[in-house]
Amino acid sequence: MSKSVLLKSSLAKKYWMALTGLFLCLFLVGHLAGNLQLLKAGEEGRRAFNEYAYFMAHNPVVKILSYLTYISIIFHVIDGFLLFAQNRKARPVKYAHTRPQENSSFASRNMALLGTLILVFIVTHMQNFWYKAKISNGPFPLHTLVKEIDNQEYDPATGAIVNKKQDVKLYLLTNGQYQMIDLEDKDNIELRHNTEIYSKKLDVKVAEGYKDLHSLTTAFFGHDNSKYGFPKNDLATVAVIFYVVSMLVLIFHLWHGFSSAFQSLGLRSKKYAPIIITVGKIFAVVVPVLFAVIPVYLYLTK
């Protein structure tokens, strides 16, 4: 295998573009499957989403896939810009009058522009969710449930025992139980790595909670989750509109990109071209639309 040919030639750039693009299509499916759990209502949905997020953050296979995803995005972007720059250079004098709409689709001619818009979305999206959930330091609110319980109290003034309502905070733990833990009890309990609850005296992990990413997400799209530590996002309307528009851009990018990847890899033939094109178009519409449905649903149910 000659190395330079598989890295530098015009065709090699297309192979890498196609391979990383198709891998990112797979990533979209995985990401969507997780996101769809946000459509589950109530505590059950919240629990399902946070448990899923915990799994994604701790499974070694997912970890490898996530690094492949980062690499694919970076490679796809750099390769894309290189191709774009070379292609601009290949026509130094432009036509005075041109009618490209007669022979090709808008999406196919503007993949670099569409891709750049998607990159802007990815950057903001990672800042809003990925960075907050994974990188930023400081305590991250855990999955808690506030429950009202009856508490009997002795009233010294009257000498009677009265029933009083009281709120208690229950933590959802990785053993599946909801438990009352007093994290304020700094003498005995310590929180490490955001979610792991340690007994200070024994220096032993006694339990582990879940990061409340569900509340982070729903608050971002307009829910008031102050009681869980996530006040409602004042710019939720803007966030939802930006998200939906970005998914529209993604439709155009995938509309051309999906089948184009097969063409670049030489996997297209007379026999399979119609299937690849049809599957590509269905994929291009269904995946972004399902992604977009989630923030819209969250916004409307706020």
Binding site: L83, Q86, A90, N103, M111, S260, F262, Q263, S264, G266
Partner: peptide
């Protein structure tokens, strides 16, 4: 100094001999 293909398909449409894009897939292969 020719540019890189981005599979727009414009060539196939404008080609006076209607050469098919399948040839490009074959060359890639």
């Amino acid at each position: 100094g020719f540019g890189n293909c981005s599979n727009t398909g414009a060539c196939e449409v404008e080609c006076p001999k209607e050469i098919s894009l399948e040839n490009i897939a074959r060359m890639n292969r």
